[in-house]
Computed example of a mutant assay.
Amino acid sequence: MVIDRRAILKGLAAAVAAGLAPGRASAARRPPLYVSCRMDAEGKASATMFSLDGQEIFSTLLPTRGHDATARPASSEIVVFARRPGNWFAVIDATKGGEARTILAAKDRHYYGHGVFTPDGRLLYATENDITSGAGLLGIYDAGDAYRRIGEISSRGIGPHDLAFLPDGKTLVVANGGLRTALETGREVLNPDDIQPNIALIEAAHDQTLAALQLHQPYRALSIRHMAVARDRTVAFGCQYQGDPNDLPPLVGTVSADGKIGLFEMPEVELMGMSNYVGSIALDKSEDIVAATSPQGGSVALWNRRTGEFLTTERMGDVCGVAALPETHDFLLTSGNDGVRSYVEGAETMARVTGDKMQKWIWDNHLLPIDV
């Protein structure tokens, strides 16, 4: 996601001066920045932007635990969503960091933790729940008018979680996880016997359904949660299994540009290490490699996106956040109890990102790379 480079020039200058620590990055390249939510030892939640050498660009307190973030194109604004089921999102100005505007959910609505801007940055779509009916919704917010809620459309399912635009900038892809929740009951699944996940493709401007893709019947208990979209329109997705914990269904797959779903295989012993749960998913810089994290299993698994070939797993306690590093096939990873590390292809071990602060925080689910 591209944001206004001038808006964070001051923070960047500090990051550039310190240099890049992990990986094989060139000193001539602008250092990447990342945004993630975190908690301290007392449970106080915040959102932070940091560089790979551990420089903190900003840290902003949040009302409660955060989940994911999205950057407004051609702007210094970053929107952070509450963990599901949440009733707020925060708008942070990256030039100031400490100042946030909080937007509360509409009556009888709650958020599911994710949102995406239109490519022009004018509108924000957020995954939401109609608390009364349980229907999944995409709330629409006018970013140019103090994020006023101007409408909503159906998500074409229940429990929409992650969403993104395809490269055409017109088609929304929505991961409807199939799980109904409510604010008063927290994360309790209210429809355990009627989970119907799908991946919906919606022409956003005209609210037109292009497809609602479901997994085959044996895998209907796979709640589709998170996605990463490639430039060729392939959508990689990760799932959280809601069935018998002794089952070992595949957890990661792709939807090709022509709408075909394929699930990735992996050795049974490695699959057991994922504990039927994918917390986040990302593509590397080349978009050749899919990485999926499992905080429950304490592991990150990698596949070749184009062939579906399983590559390897790496161990990291409570790992969840994952994003591409500047070099091909490399990833940055965050953990609830094991700090921030870089996975570099060919390295014997994962390296810790420098800076003591980076290692002491309880990092939350997702990691947003900022292209400046």
Results as ranks from 00 to 15, higher is better:
Ala74Arg: 12
Ser76Thr: 14
Glu77Pro: 01
Glu77Cys: 01
Val79Gly: 02
Phe81Ala: 02
Phe81Gly: 02
Ala82His: 05
Ala82Ser: 14
Arg83Gly: 01
Gly86Met: 06
Asn87Lys: 12
Trp88His: 07
Trp88Ser: 03
Phe89Arg: 03
Val91Tyr: 04
Ile92Lys: 03
Asp93Ala: 11
Ala94Ile: 04
Thr95Val: 00
Lys96Gly: 00
Gly97Ala: 08
Glu99Gly: 01
Ile103Gln: 02
Ile103Gly: 03
Ile103Phe: 06
His110Lys: 03
His110Cys: 15
Gly115Met: 05
Val116Arg: 08
Phe117Gly: 05
Thr118Gly: 08
Pro119Phe: 06
Asp120Lys: 08
Leu123Trp: 13
Leu124Glu: 07
Ala126Met: 06
Ala126Lys: 01
Ala126Val: 15
Asn129Gly: 06
Asn129Lys: 02
Asp130Met: 07
Ile131Cys: 00
Thr132Trp: 00
Thr132Val: 14
Ser133Asn: 11
Gly134Asp: 12
Gly134Lys: 06
Ala135Met: 08
Ala135Gln: 13
Gly136Ser: 11
Asp145Ile: 00
Tyr147Glu: 02
Tyr147Lys: 04
Gly151Trp: 09
Glu152Pro: 00
Glu152Trp: 01
Ser154Lys: 07
Ser154Ile: 08
Ser155Glu: 06
Ile158Asp: 04
His161Arg: 12
Phe165Asp: 09
Leu166Val: 11
Pro167Tyr: 06
Asp168Ala: 12
Gly169Gln: 10
Lys170Gln: 15
Leu172Met: 11
Val173Thr: 14
Val174Glu: 05
Ala175Val: 04
Asn176Met: 09
Asn176Leu: 11
Gly177Met: 11
Leu179Asn: 09
Ala182Gly: 12
Ala182Arg: 15
Leu183Arg: 09
Leu183Val: 13
Gly186Phe: 10
Glu188Lys: 15
Leu190Ala: 10
Pro192Ser: 12
Asp193His: 12
Pro197Val: 08
Asn198His: 08
Ala205Asn: 12
Ala205Ser: 15
His206Pro: 00
His206Val: 14
His206Glu: 14
Asp207Met: 00
Leu210Asn: 03
Leu210Val: 04
Leu210Pro: 08
Ala211Ser: 15
Ala212Gly: 01
Tyr219Ala: 10
